[in-house]
């Protein structure tokens, strides 16, 4: 396992983060160490073992298709930095 600076730049871009050159270097080292540690698991023989998506052996947690009241526009918007009528207001995203 070897994390390169390009890998970190790519992940940072996907996460919309801008990293300074020294941060980039620091992150590359840290991520490499973390993933290297997790990589130890690859030493185990997992041949024939089904991939585990969940640690708890549980399945089928359902709810019935019944309406519950919503929280209301005012509460929904109370943490919004800006609003536009009953909508959230965000910076323009397209074209």
């Amino acid at each position: 396992m070897k994390i390169t600076q390009q890998d970190v730049e790519h992940v940072a871009r996907l996460a919309r983060l801008t990293l300074e050159p020294q941060e980039l270097e620091m992150m590359t080292g840290q991520m490499d160490a973390i993933l290297g540690y997790v990589d130890k698991l690859n030493e185990l023989d997992t041949e024939g073992i089904e991939p585990t998506a969940h640690a708890v052996p549980m399945s089928n947690a359902f709810r019935a298709d019944e309406k519950k009241s919503s929280i209301g526009i005012e509460r929904a918007l109370q943490n919004a930095p800006e609003r536009d009528g009953s909508c959230y207001k965000v910076p323009k995203v397209i074209e």
């Binding site: 536009d84 009528g85 909508c87 959230y88 207001k89 910076p91 323009k92 995203v93 397209i94």
Partner: peptide, 14 residues
């Protein structure tokens, strides 16, 4: 739903 209004902002309806 993203509603594109005039100017520099968009409105979000969830």
């Amino acid at each position: 739903k993203l509603i594109h209004t005039d100017g520099n902002s968009s409105a979000v309806d969830l």
